[in-house]
């Protein structure tokens, strides 16, 4: 059994005849930040959803602190609150204020009504004056930051980010990336699927290039972006870094 915070071995996932993940091995240490890069359809999003077991995997194993969380039939409630996830499309609950979005899960799942802590989170990410607003009154960047706060309110040990800036107007991307920088500096363990190559290069401990459902190449960002070894990685980086 691997020692890492999170470990994947031979993870496979198909949707019908379409095999999306073809055997993923990955170890993530506590406090590490990993960026998954690769073309659309390479399996990045599916991999994230298989990590928090939103999608049950077909074969292989996912360990969280040595606990096999991919075991069929396992009660996933306790697992999911340890792994936060933020989606590309925010998915805030539109009928609740930003603050209620953040408070719902702690109230119902943890049975605690810690408004002060939620408000502190809004404060920390510069949204204190917006927390009474409803999602449709907020910009995309603000909504996405609320989604991050909502996930953080469950005090997860790992955060997954599924292309969280991909749906944003270019001028709003910065404010969301700043949130990630802040989390990084606080030592959060994070896995990002991202198209923001500059950001991946700046902050990631490790970059994994995915193609066709496997991790083709992985390494420190400097090496990955300046001297990739595999031809497919080189081709992909040439096409996006042009």
């Amino acid at each position: 059994m691997p020692e890492a915070k999170l470990s994947l071995r031979g993870v496979q996932k198909s949707f019908g005849d379409n095999q999306v993940l073809r055997g993923i091995d990955l170890d993530v240490a506590a406090g590490e930040m990993i960026c998954l890069i690769g073309a659309s359809g390479s399996g990045k999003s599916t991999l994230l959803r298989c990590i928090n077991q939103l999608e049950p995997i077909d074969d292989g194993t996912v360990w969280l602190d040595g606990l096999d969380i991919s075991e069929p039939g396992l009660d996933l409630g306790p697992v999911r609150r340890r792994i936060g996830i933020v989606f590309q499309s925010y998915n805030l609950f539109p009928h609740m204020s930003a603050l209620d979005n953040v408070l719902l899960a702690p109230r119902r799942v943890l049975g605690e009504d810690n408004k002060a802590r939620a408000e502190a989170l809004f404060e920390r990410f510069g949204l204190a004056q917006h927390m009474r607003k409803y999602p449709d009154q907020l910009s995309g960047g603000q909504q996405q930051r609320v989604a991050v706060i909502r996930a953080l309110a469950m005090q997860p040990e790992i955060m997954l980010f599924d292309e969280i800036t991909a749906a944003l107007d270019p001028e709003l991307v910065g404010e969301v990336l700043n949130v990630l920088r802040q989390l990084r500096s606080e030592g959060m363990t994070m896995i990002l699927a991202t198209h923001e190559m500059g950001f991946a290069r700046e902050l990631a401990d490790r970059v994994c290039f995915m193609d066709g459902g496997v991790i083709v190449e992985e390494g420190p960002p400097e090496q990955m972006f300046t001297a990739p070894e595999v031809a497919r990685t080189q081709a992909f980086l040439r096409s996006v870094l042009r």
Partner: peptide
């Protein structure tokens, strides 16, 4: 379905997801 997924991923159970989301 993304609304349900968001709720499930926060650790909410089926019943709470239906009732509150």
């Amino acid at each position: 379905a993304s609304q349900r997924n968001a709720a499930i991923c926060l650790g909410l159970g089926e019943r709470d997801t239906m009732r509150y989301v």
